[in-house]
């Protein structure tokens, strides 16, 4: 019986690996979900390396033209989560591929600028111009389960 429970437990732990190479560990932290997810989808930290998240959190006052400043304590907690789960730290699922394609000399702050994103999104213009898309960073417009880290539905 004990062995069975152990096996079941291991199976659960291993589950995400079965979800395929395109699986990206979703955001689980409530503060990150709330603060990073109010204006746009809370992007999974695995898409960028730790150095990118640090750069982004250093520049919240001009966040792609938006003043996304946060109180210092919240910003520090969010930074810690993003860095600890960054693609080059966690390295699970899609993150491993994404990081493998990124030059260590680059510190992109747009996921859409990464070689992995661009390689997977060679799409005709009309698809980007679909009114539901608005912008390339609007993952859930096409990947309806993006927030859960599932991008294989393309």
């Amino acid at each position: 019986m004990r062995k069975f429970i152990l096996a079941a437990g291991l199976a659960l732990i291993a589950l995400p690996a079965w979800a395929g190479d395109d699986w990206m560990p979703p955001v689980t932290d409530p503060l990150v979900k709330k603060e990073c997810g109010s204006c746009h989808m809370a992007f999974q930290p695995g898409f960028l390396p730790a150095r990118s998240w640090n750069k982004m959190m250093d520049g919240l006052a001009d966040h792609f033209g938006e003043d996304a400043s946060l109180p210092a304590d919240k910003a520090a907690a969010i930074r810690a989560y993003l860095v600890n789960n960054a693609g080059d730290v966690a390295g699970q699922g899609r993150a491993r591929k994404a990081m493998g394609r990124l030059s260590s000399a680059d510190t992109p702050i747009r996921i859409t600028d990464t070689p992995d994103f661009q390689r997977k999104h060679r799409l005709p213009d009309w698809r980007w111009k679909d009114p539901k898309v608005v912008t390339k960073s609007n993952c859930p417009a096409c990947h309806v389960e993006a927030e859960r880290g599932l991008y294989e539905d393309d």
Binding site: C39, H40, M41, N138
Partner: peptide, 8 residues
Amino acid sequence: GRNAKTGR
């Protein structure tokens, strides 16, 4: 509504 910049 919908965020005009992000589509959210």
